[in-house]
Structures are given as C-alpha cells and as structure tokens.
C-alpha cells in the first residue's frame, strides 16, 4: 500500500519535472494506482436508511415518488409558501431570491451571454422539469426546507411550469407526466469543450 503510494507520488513528480508537457493535467493525487482493497470499516446500510436520504430525482424521472398535484392548487400554495421571497408573480428579489417566472421576450433566443441583466427563469433557462421537483422538495421553502408533502411539490412544480408557459394551467402532474415535460431550451445545453492548450474557448 505504502509502496504503491510512493510510486504514484514518484510518477507524479516525474511527470511534473519532465521535459515534455503531459497532454492532460497530471493527477495531483494519482490515486488511480492505489490497489483496491477492503479495510472492513463502516457497516452495511439498510434499505430503510437509504430510502430516507435518497430523495434525488433524475432527468429520466427516476426517483419521482407516488402522488400528484395540480397547477391550480400550486398557485394557491405558491402565494402561501413562496411569494414572500419570490414575489406574488414569481418575479423574485435577485440575487438572493431568484426570479422563477417569466418568458421575457428579450430572453427568448437565449441571449444571456450578451446581456447579463436578463434573468434566468425556469421557463427561459432551466433544461429539465424534474429539477424543479427535486430542488423544491429538498430545499424549499427556505424557512422550512423539506417540509412539503410530495403532492404539494407536484402542485408547485405544475404551477411553476404552467406560469412559465411550459404546460397548461389546467395541468396535473405525477411521476409519469412530469417525466414527459420537455423544457423549451433543453437543447441549448452543451458539454464542456475546453481542454486547455493554446486556444481560448
């Protein structure tokens, strides 16, 4: 073990002091060369304690719970639980409390890189509808995070999507229908193409 670590450190040092630059950044840790082994530490997690913490929702809908909620109910909930920070119309108080609602004509076309005053709302920026559910459930409302029922989170998600003109205000969402919602600007998101080297990207 120790020998492996020493070797990896030596390799890292050699890579740094070599005459030829590595094609990619040398690993600071070089931990990939540590041989796999087990120390017998920790204990097996029970399905119950995993379920308690595993509240994440994926873009494919994985993790969405049972239940449902309507945009109409969500509108009422928003005024009661969200409007004190995000404003009665979801206009927000940026930067602490972001604008949630708005399809500003100037923002359509995704011109954010040329105008930093344009607000990134759910409707004109967010690429995945499932993110709304995940974030509201785990972190909102700010003074009582994690206090909403799954039905309430579905309702609020439906209201936020409807008021951003993504789904109709008559909509009701559940795990199936939320997964099928495609956000207007999903296709604008691209992976990182920066790789170092001489070109500035």
């Amino acid at each position: 073990m120790r020998r492996a670590l020493l070797i990896s450190v030596a390799l890292t040092v050699a890579a740094c002091s070599g005459e030829r630059a590595a094609p990619r950044a040398p690993s600071a840790g070089g931990f990939a060369s540590i041989p796999a082994r087990r120390y017998g530490l920790g204990r097996a997690a029970t399905p119950e304690e995993i379920a308690l913490r595993n509240i994440d929702v994926g873009p494919d809908g994985e993790g969405l719970p049972a239940g449902s909620g309507s945009a109409a109910l969500g509108a009422d909930l928003f005024q009661k639980k969200c409007s004190m920070c995000h404003g009665p119309k979801g206009q927000g108080m940026p930067p602490a409390f972001p604008q949630l609602i708005g399809r500003d004509a100037k923002a359509e076309g995704f011109k954010f890189s040329t105008d930093f005053k344009l607000q990134h709302t759910i409707g004109n920026y967010w690429p995945y509808a499932t993110t709304v559910f995940d974030y509201v459930r785990r972190a909102m409302p700010q003074l009582q995070p994690g206090s909403l029922t799954n039905d309430e989170v579905y309702s609020l998600t439906a209201f936020l999507l409807a008021s951003n003109e993504v789904i109709p205000m008559s909509a009701t969402l559940d795990s199936v229908s939320l997964t099928t919602v495609k956000m207007p600007y999903r296709d604008r998101f691209v992976s990182d193409n920066r790789r170092g080297g001489k070109e500035v990207k």
Binding site: P98, F110, K111, F112, Y125, F189, S191, D192
Partner: peptide, 29 residues
C-alpha cells in the same frame, strides 16, 4: 449511477451562456 442527475446547481446555476446561443454545462476545470 450512470448519468448526471441534472440538479439545480448544474443546470440553472453553474452553467455558462455562450455567444452562439448555447450554454456550457459541467464546465468543471
């Protein structure tokens, strides 16, 4: 898992709008 979770922090935030009308995502380095 086998794919990113698309959390708020890697979609709504920590993405980089570009002049070509795209937004760079997972720009870690």
């Amino acid at each position: 898992g086998t794919r990113p979770w698309m959390t708020r922090w890697e979609t709504s935030k920590y993405t980089d709008p570009l002049p070509d009308g795209k937004a760079r995502q997972f720009s870690f380095d």
